[in-house]
Design a binder for these strands. Structure first.
Lengths: 370, 370
DNA sequence: TCCGATACGATCATTTTCGAACATTGGAGG
DNA sequence: CCTCCAATGTTCGAAAATGATCGTATCGGA
């Protein structure tokens, strides 16, 4: 009936879409496409420039340099040369706290760096699984006492035990965007979850179990680390699948880590039990322990994989063993990148965005130990 | 009976529907379509703005940015504009299949549109909960037989029952990026999950339970829909929290939907049981059923919320009831936007990216029914 | 360096929309 | 029958959005 006169706000939205499509657009084109005079286009641009959505150049407009990298997942960086990535003014500072800086987490950190892409400054603290220590590290970052005063946090805090729960409440109450990495937490009277990006470890260990079943193993064993927060999920997934497939889990042991003095004895005990009970395949949490176990087995004359198949959970160094170990590889870099993206989005949008929890699938890397 | 004077609440419902259709609408059009003067439209808008359902802009109204979950706050209400951008070349085509196009899903679709913001062409199929029908719709989209041949799929397939499992296997085997919306599926011999973006409905119903406990209710009831795929999660979350908090779940009923002829009887039965057993609060899945239940309660002289508190699960129309209903609102638009982003990323990066499953937190919108 | 073409910003006119005050209508209840 | 009240319509001055005009600034090519 009547010709549709679009709402001003809708027209501006289309204008933005149009500019985003190619990174920039000319006023004359916009005027034609949107069906209004150039004057109006310019006025719209003036508004959008004022709130920082766009940037004006002679003849048209473009996406501001700062938002270019992060605003959307589907960055269509066509045609536009990368403009001034270094824009110190108004740059965000992100604090990051991880439990270890020499195992597992370096790759996560790299993922965060890649995703930050120079648009945010990262401050890293780490190396402790202790609740109070972590709290002090975070406190130093948020800067109640004149610290750097970060704009957001990426944290992998301890989550087990009452102290950890209290730490979680404190983190949630910081009034600062927080994204957890490889952890999940709910806080507050309504048990609202914090944002998180985590590997589905249960899926990974389950996949390992399916792999072993496929290779014909019936009597299998599980060796997990007493100190690792992910062991519980690894164990759960493994047992769920062995149960589903009817495999016999003869062995289900928690050990001290390789670095502990008691490891030698516990490893020997594991191998003794395997020999006694006829276990033909093991899933070993943490590939460092898996490598050590394989070495010790070989010293005893047990051939891997002929007499004992081994799947390592984690894939830091599993590929360097002899033979190279089949391993479940958590997507560490993607964890970091995903967490950084969630945080960037949160900082951009504010509280009016529902909490996101992202779960990633690990991958089974099949090598020669199975 | 005559079209002369529809009820105000019905007019407002139509108004919302009209706005949701394209994301925005102008006062003058609404005035013409609804057959009332612009003043009345503005007054309706004022009401809907007050309870957060809509947002006013000069010349009309639109869905609030909050609900849209957009990065810039400027929602791109690109509703298939008459002036289509000319550059069809190289543009991606996305197929989308949803079970309903008049309830729940319009907002999800809008979220997808916003996230695509013109960079992808969307083809929509929908309106069926039937497994074979859905398969035919998807088959038509992927175009084995000369269909449009989409580059990726956004689907909300049925997931219950053996037929549905087979459909899942088929979807996973399509060799085409697929992202599920509001569904989860694992397929293949290794039970690998497909990518998905879904609301944590169990969290939402749990939050509702906590809210009722906080208001002092002890004897509570649950009414879910027999036909909805989300009812199971709603029920699980509700029961988990009532159990944790020691609430007595006196009533736990599944009903037919409002559209079914049997609804009147079942609603009456629910109210009878409430009266008999002294239930003081209900969680009702789907706000349409909740509204109907509240109306029938009031006809019996039961005051809401004085004698019976009601929380609706879903927030399509809950705000329009009298009294406006407290409701759990799933982040529908963000579901769509997140799914579109995952798909875009997948198309961009390819298979070297771990599967992502995203879970979003719903929000409890507290109104006057509790 | 100069020149034509194009883009820009400011001002003013016109149309559309907004919001508030006031009038009208149609029930519900005393 | 009357009053009260809520919903809707009417009127009108103010504000916003858009377009037209004109002098100035900027760009690209000779």
């Amino acid at each position: 009936m009547t010709e549709e006169a679009p709402l001003p706000s809708e027209r501006r939205a289309r204008l933005i879409a149009r500019v985003r499509e190619t990174g920039s657009a000319r006023v004359s084109d916009l005027s034609r496409v949107l069906g209004v005079t150039p004057v109006t286009v310019r006025r719209d641009l003036a508004l959008l420039v004022a709130d920082g959505t766009l940037e004006k150049v002679h003849g048209g407009a473009r996406i501001p340099a700062r938002a270019a990298g992060m605003s959307t997942g589907a960055t269509t960086g066509i045609g536009m040369p990368a403009v001034t990535p270094a824009d110190d003014a108004g740059q965000l500072t992100i604090g990051m706290v991880v439990p270890s800086i020499d195992y597992y987490w370096p790759e996560v950190i790299r993922g965060v760096r890649d995703a930050a892409h120079g648009t945010a400054r990262l401050i890293l603290r780490g190396g402790s699984y202790d609740v109070d220590q972590v709290r002090r590290q975070v406190a130093a970052l948020v800067g109640d006492d004149g610290g750097p005063g970060v704009d957001g946090l990426l944290v992998a805090p301890p989550v087990d035990g009452p102290d950890a729960a209290e730490l979680g409440e404190w983190l949630a109450g910081l009034n600062l965007p927080v994204v957890l990495m490889e952890r999940r937490l709910a806080a507050g009277p309504y048990r609202e979850p914090l944002e998180s990006v985590a590997t589905d470890h249960a899926l990974g260990s389950g996949t390992a179990a399916r792999h072993l079943a496929e290779r014909g193993h019936q009597r299998v064993g599980l060796v997990t680390s007493r100190t690792s927060p992910t062991s519980a999920a690894v164990r759960r997934g493994f047992l769920a699948v062995t149960d589903e497939l009817g495999l016999d889990v003869i062995l289900d042991l928690e050990t001290v880590p390789l670095s502990d003095a008691g490891w030698a004895d516990e490893a020997a005990a594991v191998l003794d039990r395997c020999a006694e009970t006829g276990v033909t395949a093991l899933l070993v949490h943490s590939d460092k322990e898996a490598i050590s176990l394989v070495e010790r087995a070989q010293e005893r004359g047990v051939r891997v994989p002929a007499n004992l198949a081994v799947v390592a959970y984690d894939d830091e160094v599993a590929g360097l063993a002899d033979p190279p170990l089949t391993a479940v590889r958590p997507p560490k870099a993607t964890i970091g990148a995903g967490a950084m993206e969630l945080l960037a989005r949160r900082l951009e949008v504010g509280d009016d965005r529902p909490m996101h929890r992202v779960e990633l699938s690990p991958r089974l890397v099949i090598r020669s130990s199975t």
